[in-house]
Amino acid sequence: MALLEVENLKIYYFTREGAVKAVDDVSFSVDRDETLGLIGESGCGKTTAVFAIMRFVAPPGRIVGGKIIFDGNDIITMSNEEIRLLRGKGIAMVFQAAQNALNPVMTVGKQITEVILEHERITKEESWERAKRQLELVGIGSERVKNYPHEFSGGMKQRVMIAIATACNPRLLILDEPVTGLDVIVQRQLLTLINKLRKELRLPIIFITHDLSVIAETCGKVAVMYAGKIVEQASTVSLYENPVHPYSQALIRAYPSIKGEKRGLKSIPGAPPRLINPPIGCRFHPRCPYAVNICREEEPIFRKKNGHLVACHSIK
């Protein structure tokens, strides 16, 4: 059994206008020693899906169906105390925009020791030693343990976040757009660090991004999300070389390639649908150049093609 198995997960936001189907029937799994990339446009439900793994879905949002099995236990039916003990220890998370993710009036050392002291029975002195080691692990001098977040740059704050997330040796690490909003050089450094940690700590990772190149750097497996649904799952290399779903194809065409031949970039016409009233049939059909009648009527099921799992009617 895989480390994490998400099955038919449905998360709806209940608004005055109706239920927003932010995540609709999503399934994926992460094995030990595996890195899964979750890619899609803003608002496609990727963050909502992983927030559910931490059980961070708050009203008006609600998990209305499905299972999230982590290490044999269903996260959705856990007690509040069980999920609390899992957070930080079993599953750790690094958020987008580290600028605001650290408490501005607490030293970074305190913010690291806090999570260690919550989950492990060690003395304060030992926890500060651990905090220093964590900082060195992410490439920050241990003498900065008493510094405050505002004394660090954006990239360094994100390093501190990674130090916090890996402090208790979690069994799964979730990175929610960890390099978004940072300049490319800092992005590169952070991705190198993440790859190093992944290898050294043998850490399974779920990596959320809307940046294809970031996925290529880090992930073995990719799931492409569109409008609350996963449309294609494949190994990263295979997805780049032979995308099957028209949306995956369009996504890759919309991105510049440095190594390959020079080609024009193509944007995807139209905009993602509103999830209160998603299109009937395949949710991508209004923007799909290959759409035929069945796409407007019936929801596609997953089929295998070239080792890809694809939800598209064009595959027979």
Partner: peptide
């Protein structure tokens, strides 16, 4: 409503902490 509260919860801290 700040992000650092979500971070604190993600650490598994007790709600009172």
């Amino acid at each position: 409503g700040q992000d650092y509260i979500t971070t604190a919860r993600a650490k598994g801290l007790k709600e009172s902490a």
